Simulated scan of single mutants.
Amino acid sequence: MDNMIKNRFILGIGSQRAGSTLLHHLLSKSSDIFMHPVKELHFFDTLYGYREKSALKDFSTRQVFNDVDRILSANNFDFIGLKFKNRLRTNKIFSSYDIEKIDYYDLFRPYLSKKYLLGEVTPEYMLLNEEHIIRMKAVIGEDAGIILLCRNPFDRLRSALKLMNVYNNLNMDATVANDWLRYQILNETQWIKCQDLYNDYERAIRLYSKHFRFFIALSYEQLINSPLVTANLISEKLNIKIENEIFARLSTKKINSLSDEFFLNPETMAIVEARYSQYNLFFREFFKVE
Rank of each mutant, 00 (worst) to 15 (best):
A231D: 11
I185V: 14
I140K: 00
Y276M: 04
G81F: 11
S20A: 10
I102K: 04
D98A: 08
T175P: 00
D260M: 12
L233Q: 14
T61A: 14
D69T: 07
C150K: 02
S96P: 06
Y104E: 04
L181M: 13
L233G: 03
A174I: 01
Y97F: 15
N7G: 10
D196E: 13
A231P: 13
L11G: 01
Y111S: 10
N7A: 05
K115H: 12
N171R: 13
L23N: 02
L118W: 03
L186R: 15
N256H: 11
N171S: 14
D98K: 15
T46Q: 02
S60L: 09
I93H: 06
E202D: 11
N168T: 13
T268G: 03
N169H: 13
N91F: 14
D106C: 02
F43K: 06
S226N: 12
L118D: 05
L223S: 04
D179Y: 14
L47H: 04
R156F: 04
K29E: 09
R156Q: 15
K254I: 05
T230I: 00
K254A: 12
Y111C: 12
R203T: 14
R284N: 07
V38I: 03
I224V: 11
L11K: 02
L117P: 05
A204W: 02
S60T: 07
N265E: 03
R70S: 13
L27G: 02
S159T: 05
I134Y: 11
I133S: 01
S60N: 07
N199E: 09
